[in-house]
Each structure stands twice: as structure tokens, then as C-alpha cells.
Design a protein around this nucleic acid. Structure first.
Length: 412
DNA sequence: TCTGGGGTCCTAGGACCC
DNA sequence: TCTGGGGTCCTAGGACCC
């Protein structure tokens, strides 16, 4: 048998709150700090530890958080700041581990297998503590680090280490370690899965260990049973880096009010296109499929998608396809719209040969000309700021934003 | 309490092909 | 005329993650 793997999960403590304080030093002494969206209809992205005794948690509706913790200061953080700090942390981690994989914006898996000699035989916990200290010194971000033979155990160990600690599960102890948890605490066991087990009286790992795999298979299906059976015993051979099969890019927005006017929805859709199109092009890909999801006022999510005969990359081509989807969704059900998300998938490298449609779906459209136009707009924005060029309909729909949109171009 | 925004993966039915 | 099984693609919906 080969040596067990040595996996660490480094998880940033209240990451968005930390970024908010670093971006705005006046927040450094504000103990009760909540990061969330600007909208009153948003949720908590991250809450400082001082807010947590009040019951404030990530994902909680902002209205509830304000009621629980009325003295808290609520701020938002730019995506750029979040990404910048993420890159800084990653750079430090890469000095310590041969393989570092970002699992999300505030979590990194490190494969420390085979580094025993490199670290002079010190324990994994000691190495983890040194990594924690180096990241704190160089980036001012506090990590909690969990360790073990697989990703699941490492992640659950990190939850015990929080905030700002290290917890490493010794090789061979994984099974014992798991026995202290509820099944719902295992990553990827969500509320629905947990409830289907709870209905059979199984809530804790201890209880689940008494169920044989065939019975679990009857309850939740064979593949999930096999998966759970292993996780319950601390067994997890999954590789650090899982190949994403169908990558996608999306942009969405929850509106301040539910919208019923098609004209308003069209201009909101155009806004999403003008945000998403540049991202698509900067990634150097085309999209083969366009999907639109609307959330109705009653919280019903409905989705329409279309595979395109030619993969697209211009704003106009994306907008044309998305508008058809919007019309379809509105025809199916004319309910007020609370939120809208535009998603592009089946992404191909831009250089890949395009399928040439024998019969163009729109005789008036000239794809190449439209792509050159989008490229030109991207260049203008890069030079003069994101607000420099906006479609007329978007500007017209938001008179309150016109002054800032049309302010003097930044020197650059 | 009243529910964000960014994603990935899975399932299931229907169309279509061999 | 009535019948098969497998494979792939598309679409829609949903679970789950941070």
C-alpha cells in the first residue's frame, strides 16, 4: 500500500470582512462588520466574528441580520480587491506546496505528499502553522488550516480549527475523527440529502456507520450510497484538481423591485450582456450555448437555453439570442421578475474553427463585423474606464446614473 | 427570517441516429 | 408491419458549494 496522502485545506477566516478592512482602514476598529450586496434584498456574504454571537451567518437575508445585530456596519467589497488578495495568498502558498488548488475564492487545497524530507521530518501540523504565519505576515490574511489523508477530512478538520488555528488528523485516525460529526456536516451533504437520511432516523455519522451499503443504496441510490459509505469512514481518494467538464460564465442581478415591463427587462438584459461579453472575450473563448434564468416574484426559477449554430463572442450576437429566450420565458409565464441571470456555456477557445452555418439565422447580422465592434468597445473601455461606452438603451433606462457614466474619461 | 452571485454536477425526457 | 437497444445531443430543473 502506498503512503497516505497529506492534504491541507487552508481556509481564510471571514475573508470578505478581512478584505473590506484592508481596503478601507477606517473599518479596522469596527468590530461588528457585515459584508453584503448594496441591495436591501441581498444576503450576508460574510460577518465578522463579533456579529456571530447574535446569530448572524453568511447567506442570511440582510434584513434579518440587521434586526439581529442592529449596531453592525454593513459594507460591500469590490470583486477586484477580493481577487487581488486571493492571488497574494496563493503566491505565498505556492512556495510551500508542490500543488496548490484554489477550491474557491477563500479556500485552497495543498498537496503536501512527499514533502516530509523537505520539511526535515517535522509534523504536518507544525508545517501548517508555519504556512499560516507566513501568509498572515505577507498578506494580512488569517487562515485556518485542516489536514488529513483526503480532502473531506482536511476540510472538516479546518472547520474545527476555525478561527485562526490548525487541526491535523493523524494518518489512520480518519475513521475515528469522523465519528464526532453529524452527517449534514459532511461537505456535499446538503439539506435535501441530510433530510432523506434523517427520515430514516440517521442523523449522526455514528448512526450512519451501522447501515450497510446495500441499504444505503436503497435509500439514496447506488452512486451516492457508495460515495457516502466512503466519506463516513474518512476515505476520500478524490484528486485535488477535478477537471471541469462544462465550464460556464454568468452574470446575474436581483432588482430593487420586481419588474413587469418588457422594456425594463430588455434593458436589464442588455446591461448583463455588456458586463458578460467583455469577460467572455478576455478569456479568449466563444460560447456555444446561451441560457437565461429568471426568478419570478414568487421565487420560482425558470430557465431557457439555446445551443447556437455558430459559437458567439460579440455583445450583439449574445443579446440577440438572450432576447429570444427572454421573450419565451415571458410568454410561458408573465409573472413579475425578481432577478435575472445570463449564462454562457459550451465555451470553445476562440481560435477553434467555427462551424459555418449554411443558412444564417439572421440575414442582417454580420458576425465578424459585430465581433470587431465588440473588440473596439473593449479597447475603449480598457483605456477610458468601464463606463466609457454603454449602449444607448441602458443609459436611457437609468437616468440616475448618467452623470457618472458620462463623467470625464479618466486619464490613463 | 424571506431568501445574492458566482459556479459545477446530476438527472430525466425527448429527438435523432445506427 | 411492428419491433430492439445503445449512443449522443438538447433542454429544463434542481442540489450543492462558498
Amino acid at each position: 500500500m502506498s503512503n497516505p496522502r497529506r492534504i491541507l485545506l487552508a481556509d481564510a477566516d471571514a475573508y470578505f470582512v478581512a478584505c473590506a478592512r484592508l481596503a478601507d482602514p477606517t473599518l479596522a476598529d469596527v468590530e461588528q462588520l457585515i459584508v453584503g450586496g448594496r441591495s436591501d434584498r441581498g444576503v450576508v456574504t460574510s460577518a465578522s466574528y463579533a456579529c456571530r454571537p447574535f446569530g448572524v451567518r453568511a447567506g442570511m437575508p440582510m434584513a434579518v441580520a440587521r434586526r439581529l445585530c442592529p449596531d453592525a456596519t454593513v459594507v460591500s467589497v469590490s470583486r477586484e480587491e477580493i481577487q487581488r488578495r486571493h492571488d497574494m495568498v496563493a503566491a505565498v502558498l505556492q512556495r510551500f506546496a508542490p500543488e496548490v488548488v484554489a477550491a474557491s475564492v477563500d479556500e485552497f487545497y495543498l498537496d503536501m505528499s512527499g514533502t516530509e524530507r523537505l520539511y526535515g521530518g517535522e509534523t504536518l501540523a507544525v508545517t501548517a502553522a508555519r504556512i499560516r504565519e507566513a501568509v498572515r505576515e505577507e498578506t494580512e490574511i488569517s487562515l485556518s488550516i485542516g489536514g488529513g489523508a483526503g480532502k473531506t477530512v482536511a476540510k472538516m478538520a479546518a472547520s474545527l480549527a476555525k478561527p485562526g488555528g490548525v487541526h491535523v488528523v493523524a494518518g489512520g485516525e480518519e475513521g475515528t475523527f469522523m465519528r464526532r460529526f453529524a452527517v449534514a456536516e459532511i461537505p456535499f451533504v446538503g439539506p435535501v440529502f441530510a433530510e432523506s437520511l434523517a427520515r430514516r432516523g440517521v442523523r449522526t455519522v455514528e448512526q450512519a456507520l451501522r447501515i450497510d451499503q446495500a441499504t444505503l443504496g436503497h435509500w439514496v441510490g447506488e452512486s451516492r450510497a457508495r460515495w457516502l459509505y466512503q466519506r463516513l469512514r474518512g476515505v476520500d481518494d478524490s484528486p485535488l484538481r477535478e477537471e471541469a467538464k462544462n465550464r460556464s460564465l454568468g452574470r446575474g442581478r436581483t432588482f430593487a423591485f420586481d419588474h413587469t415591463e418588457m422594456e425594463t427587462l430588455r434593458s436589464e438584459l442588455l446591461r448583463l450582456v455588456t458586463e458578460l461579453g467583455p469577460t467572455l472575450r478576455s478569456e479568449g473563448v466563444r460560447a456555444g450555448t446561451v441560457a437565461l434564468t429568471v426568478r419570478d416574484g414568487d421565487f420560482t426559477d425558470r430557465r431557457a437555453q439555446r445551443a447556437l449554430p455558430d459559437a458567439v463572442r460579440s455583445d450583439r450576437a449574445i443579446y440577440r439570442a438572450a432576447l429570444e429566450l427572454l421573450s419565451k420565458l415571458r410568454t410561458d409565464r408573465a409573472a413579475p421578475t425578481r432577478a435575472m441571470t445570463l449564462t454562457l456555456s459550451h465555451l470553445h477557445p476562440d481560435g477553434a474553427p467555427r462551424q459555418l452555418a449554411l443558412f444564417g439565422s439572421d440575414a442582417a447580422a454580420d458576425p465578424e463585423r459585430e465581433e470587431r465592434l465588440s473588440d473596439a468597445v473593449d479597447r475603449l473601455r480598457a483605456r477610458h474606464g468601464a463606463g466609457a461606452v454603454l449602449p444607448a438603451r441602458v443609459v436611457g433606462a437609468r437616468p440616475d446614473e448618467q452623470t457618472s457614466r458620462f463623467g470625464p474619461p479618466r486619464k490613463g
